[in-house]
């Protein structure tokens, strides 16, 4: 079974205890993708919202063909926040503007999650979702 069961190596690779201290932000909105009727290309937009401890993260995912882009906004009580984009076996730190906006593009399909870190606070993680 072990060699033939599909997804076994990916499931084993998911094991990571480095963020056990982090708190999980609740998903409070997860809209189904909608296509922009004004555009001829197959662009679909999904909106997600996470919330924890007075911090809200709004995400807009745009799937454009094989690649996706992500625009986000962190709203709430913070002077400085670091946002990292987590992929399996990959971690990408995003530049967060003064107003809390961040952006990433050229994202391949697959699972994705975010971590938010504020000074003197426990890190926050979002649930994994698929783009």
């Amino acid at each position: 079974m072990k060699d033939t069961e599909p997804g076994r190596s990916a499931a084993l690779a998911a094991f990571d205890r480095s963020l056990d201290r982090a708190r999980t932000a609740c998903t409070v909105l997860d809209s189904t993708p909608s296509r922009d009727p004004s555009r001829s290309e197959a662009v679909a937009t999904t909106t997600l919202r996470f919330h924890l401890d007075g911090l809200r993260v709004d995400l807009r995912l745009r799937a454009d063909g094989d690649l996706s882009s992500l625009s986000g906004l962190v709203i709430g009580d913070f002077d400085h926040v670091e946002v990292c984009l987590r992929r399996p076996e990959e971690r990408l730190r995003l530049f967060v503007r003064g107003d809390g906006a961040f952006h990433a593009e050229g994202l391949r399909r697959g699972p994705l999650a975010l971590t938010m870190e504020r000074p003197d606070r426990l890190p926050m993680v979002t649930d994994w979702f698929t783009i």
């Binding site: 599909p6 997804g7 990916a10 499931a11 998911a14 094991f15 990571d16 963020l19 056990d20 999980t24 399996p88 399909r109 697959g110 699972p111 999650a113 993680v125 649930d127 994994w128 979702f129 698929t130």
Partner: peptide, 15 residues
């Protein structure tokens, strides 16, 4: 495969 991987990543996180 993406969905199954997402399930295991979520289990790891919520363990």
């Amino acid at each position: 495969e993406d969905a199954v991987q997402t399930v295991w990543l979520n289990l790891n996180q919520h363990l």
